[in-house]
Design a protein around this nucleic acid. Sequence first.
DNA 1: TGTGTTAGTTTAAGCGTTTAACCTTACAAT
DNA 2: ATTGTAAGGTTAAACGCTTAAACTAACACA
Lengths: 344, 344
Amino acid sequence: MKRITIRDVSERAGVSTAAVSYVLNGREGKVSQETATKVRRAVAELNYIPDFSARSLAGTRSKLIGVVIPQTEDQKQLLLQNPFYSELVCGIEARLRQSGYHMILSGVDKGEGYLDTSMQRNLDGAIIMGIYQESFYDDLKRVKVPIVLIDSYVNDSYFQTVSIDDEAGGYMATKLLIDNGHSNIALVTGLIRKDGVVEKRFLGYKRALKEAGLFYNSDYVFEHSVSYEYGQEAAAAIAAGHPEITAVFASSDLVALGVLRGLSDAGKRVPEDVSVVGFDDIPVARMCNPPLTTVRQNIVARGAMAADRLLKAIEEGEDSLADDPSVARLEMAIRQTVQRLTPN
Amino acid sequence: MKRITIRDVSERAGVSTAAVSYVLNGREGKVSQETATKVRRAVAELNYIPDFSARSLAGTRSKLIGVVIPQTEDQKQLLLQNPFYSELVCGIEARLRQSGYHMILSGVDKGEGYLDTSMQRNLDGAIIMGIYQESFYDDLKRVKVPIVLIDSYVNDSYFQTVSIDDEAGGYMATKLLIDNGHSNIALVTGLIRKDGVVEKRFLGYKRALKEAGLFYNSDYVFEHSVSYEYGQEAAAAIAAGHPEITAVFASSDLVALGVLRGLSDAGKRVPEDVSVVGFDDIPVARMCNPPLTTVRQNIVARGAMAADRLLKAIEEGEDSLADDPSVARLEMAIRQTVQRLTPN
DNA sequence: TGTGTTAGTTTAAGCGTTTAACCTTACAAT
DNA sequence: ATTGTAAGGTTAAACGCTTAAACTAACACA
């Protein structure tokens, strides 16, 4: 079954291939209404489907977007296990498809190799999440293509970003605990990198303490990695070594879930003995037991925003984007892991 | 910055473009060692990166694979929220990348449009998960390209599959409950479609009952959709209307989580009052409270198997695959939601 | 000496698009 | 009657690669 090409269409319609191409690409003013109609009829009759490889070769858009998400520690797998990233991907995909784009989803091996992918495939743009390798971004700038960053505070105005106010989020979460009468509040978190998401949340935590006149105790900061396992570990340490701690702010829901388990294993009840607040509001947050009180960001919407921004940059030029970086809204999802501390 | 082409390489190496192409594609016997070396040096010096669009146009492989996953009910979003699918995708991506392939991840609007994507992009193959639309598969057959199905019992030997023994899984789960002294066992499950995954599990459930000489009561089958919400709903109904039920087999972990919540809301304790078994062993199964006893399938591995099978079919021809359909192993993950029933 | 044969190399014709540049008309303005 | 211009069409080169077919040189064989 031979492929139907633009030439077949042109013959059927009795016009040149150029005319067909113009119609297909909606080049206003290049063709008459009449020709357009003939072409469209021929396209429909023949069930013509354009070949994107050829388009891309001929020097136009490939309508392909690269989406990069982090990998597991062992670098073997995508971190799609973390619902945060899968939600983002959902939001992105929906928007891209809707606009006739496709998404190449992939990880990167320690920052290497993405440049190749981008060139090989003539990607029209990319959305990059949570990669911290410096060199990666240097590479990225060399493919002259719009790029949107999510959750990576790279201090470089070359990149577009779609972020949330992480500092405010950290503040809100901590404030909630303080308002409920807690004063010995632990922070369990991933590695605090300069300019990273995690640092911002940490800063919010400190600000809330300070504003409330509470003492910031660095012993209460448990910093290691964004994982269920670490949450569990940290909770065990808290239960064992710091009976005075009555509340935990986990800077990610995944970690919070681990904390819940660790606490429960240590015989502490949540929220009766210890209150817990998470961050992100991934779907499991409401499914777990007890349902997790957390800082909600609409992750899917954030993915969609990123896609929108990217498409706009691609189709209307980078400058069409005002330099207001889009910042998504945050709110508390109050559920059942925080309890007012009643002095006994 | 102009693109480096195969022509640049050929000039630098002092050979023809054909020679370069042969070296790049590892055509043994077409080129001498000497030429190969010269070419490789030139490639390295110029940092040449091939253009896949051109390759694809020139009639060879595109090294692009389509991966299709189901969408949410409203057809708006990918069902990546279900960790089952994200895990599969992880497994697939890792294997594909390793072999120099890329993955276009997308959903399909009610079975439509995938054919277009496949043709537009000259996809080398596809991995399709859990789509039930009949017409979709008819379309699929028209693009003469290898296809691997996951979780879709389409009765058509045209497609490769990577499955699990769902019937056995259903049997194992139910048997576990029976062995623990339960006899009034509810099944909470998605829609039971002819030849669907869910039906197989249902059949396993029935077989276990029968073998144990237990009466199969269709009132104990709660059948609607694979979602947390439905699990919750069904659990409420069970707690309210069937106090005699002491155990629930949920045919998917997501549903099981809902059941946990519904039961807990109704004041039933798990596993003291009611035992629960899930299916899949998604990551949250061990994170939830109490940790869920479930039928474990190594989902990531299954994704990788699918990718392997597909790549083999692509690179060595469909027939290189013996018609042993790959079937992944299943085992019980015993955790804390099943308790021996002690007659009181 | 001619004739194969083999291994290695090159030539050049595509693959399906896009698009600059060119060619017609038709019509208005001079 | 000539020129100008705009609108609508067409031609053909280019994009970067693969690959069948043609070519060449070196060697062995009768």
